[in-house]
Nucleic acid binder design. Structure first.
Lengths: 162, 162
DNA sequence: TGTGAAACCTCAGGAAT
DNA sequence: ATTCCTGAGGTTTCACA
């Protein structure tokens, strides 16, 4: 049976999703508690797997990765072996930040980041297109980002207390 | 003129991209330096905008957001006013985690997370499809995730030192 | 690179509900 | 059985030399 979030847990998760460097004390002050219960909740949320990790988010324009592409791939063969093979091999490329097996018209959507169109062209020709079993590769490029959020919105539906 | 990364900066960024809770001392030990230079570099990387922030990554299956959709939208009108209007309004929905203005066949790709297909259906009908100026909405659903990485690979091309 | 003070983390023990 | 607090030792942060 899995741990059921309480209101304080939700508030802690909301805070940490937006800034992982809140100190236990800062959060305790916001929640009107002392440090210990907040400390214990954070540890429990980590232990129970709600928090997968803490990461720094970089500005991709500062590190030569301004080009973002969503590349849609159709395979020829769709046996589970073939699907897993593509998933594993495409995920191995460092340019591939995300790889999703999809329903519908496309088998995979890859999120790819690179410096510019030259590098993208190179990547497709010398890396992605060399994988076997590919039927089509269709690329869409990001012109501008309207929203890029890592924090899930959390609602707390009043649990049955007492 | 913008700050040029040195090898230690790159190594620090790589560490923090994978675990934002490395202490300055831990990183200093890995780099074979004392704490102060590492501390100063981290502050500079933040100040110069390389590090946008530190966030906790949650497990979406634990918080009722297992369904991930990439929704492709075509608009009718493509004036910059209309494009901005859609970008702003769609970004306002909490279900929309990411919103990209794209080149090519589709005008926007939205990454949407929700609990299940019922909620998705509801979202499309009562929220997204009520926005004006939409021509088509095409949804693709994630069956499984092969790779989801927030850390950009960083290479350090030996700068001209000296 | 090292020092030092302030702030914080961590975890024991114990109180209150 | 939880949930909470106090308190104290060890660690981290951060300005300064």
């Amino acid at each position: 049976m899995s741990y059921v979030l309480q209101e304080d847990d939700v508030r802690i998760l909301q805070l940490l999703q937006h800034d992982a460097r809140f100190t236990v004390k800062e959060m305790a002050d916001k929640l009107g508690k002392s440090a210990t219960p907040v400390y214990d909740r954070v540890r429990r949320l980590e232990r129970e797997g709600f928090i997968r990790g803490y990461v720094a988010i970089l500005d991709k324009t500062k590190i030569e990765r301004s080009l973002v592409a969503f590349t849609h791939v159709q395979l020829k063969e769709h046996s589970s072996d073939m699907l897993n093979a593509f998933k594993n091999e495409s995920s191995r490329f460092p340019e591939v930040m995300e790889c999703y097996h999809m329903t519908g018209e496309y088998d995979f959507i890859l999120k790819i980041t690179l410096k510019d169109m030259n590098e993208y062209n190179d990547f497709i020709l010398t890396k992605l297109a060399t994988l076997p079993n590919i039927r089509t590769v269709q690329s869409f490029f990001v012109l501008s980002e309207g929203k890029v959020e890592t924090a899930y919105p959390l609602h707390w539906q009043a649990g049955k207390k007492k």
